[in-house]
C-alpha cells in the first residue's frame, strides 16, 4: 500500500502525528508518498489541473508490475476499502490458479469460483447463485 498526494513529506508527518495516529493505533503503517506538482498523478491520469490536486485514484498492481484494475472518483465520495480488499483477494486467487479459476460478479472470499470450460457455457446460472444481502 502506497498513498500519494501533492502534499510534502513534512505535512504527511504532521498529519500522521496530529490526526491519523488517533484513528489508527501506531499511525499509518505504509509509506505516504509526496508528489508535489502532480507528475506521478499526471502519469496515472488522476491529476486535476484545475484544482492542482489528485482525484481519488486507486490502482491494483500485480507482482509482475501489471495494473490489474483501477478506479477513479472525484473528490466528493470516499472509497470502499472492503471492495479494494475483495478485488485483491480475487486477483490473487485467479493468479494462484494460473488463471484456471475466475471469480464472477459479487464474488467474495470463500465463495465458489468458476472454471471456464465448454461445459460451463450456458450453465453459469446453475453454478453461480449469488445471494443478495442488500435491500
Amino acid at each position: 500500500m502506497l498513498s500519494l498526494s501533492v502534499d510534502s513529506v513534512y505535512v504527511h508527518k504532521v498529519w500522521n502525528e496530529s490526526e491519523l495516529s488517533k484513528m489508527v493505533p501506531g499511525g499509518v503503517p505504509f509509506p505516504m508518498l509526496s508528489d508535489p506538482g502532480g507528475a506521478i498523478g499526471r502519469e496515472y491520469n488522476v491529476y486535476n489541473e484545475d484544482t492542482a490536486v489528485d482525484l481519488r485514484g486507486t490502482f491494483i498492481i500485480d507482482p509482475d508490475g501489471v495494473i490489474q484494475g483501477y478506479q477513479v472518483l472525484t473528490s466528493v465520495v470516499g472509497r470502499s476499502t472492503d471492495e479494494i480488499i475483495r478485488q485483491i483477494h480475487a486477483f490473487q486467487i485467479v493468479r494462484e490458479s494460473k488463471e484456471k479459476e475466475f471469480t464472477p460478479a459479487d464474488w467474495k472470499p470463500g465463495m465458489t469460483v468458476l472454471k471456464p470450460a465448454v461445459e460451463l457455457v450456458g450453465r453459469v446460472w446453475e453454478m453461480w447463485k449469488p445471494v443478495r444481502t442488500r435491500e
Binding site: 500500500m1 502506497l2 513529506v9 504527511h12 500522521n16 509509506p31 505516504m32 490502482f59
Partner: peptide, 27 residues
C-alpha cells in the same frame, strides 16, 4: 515519502513480487 517516523524514498520498481495498491487522494 514519510514512513513510520522517517523520511525515505520509494521506487515502485522495488515492489516487484508483491501486490501493490496505489492510493491517490486530494490532500
Amino acid at each position: 515519502a514519510y514512513y513510520q517516523g522517517r523520511f525515505t524514498h520509494v521506487e515502485l520498481s522495488r515492489y516487484r513480487e508483491q501486490w501493490v495498491v496505489l492510493y491517490f487522494y486530494g490532500g
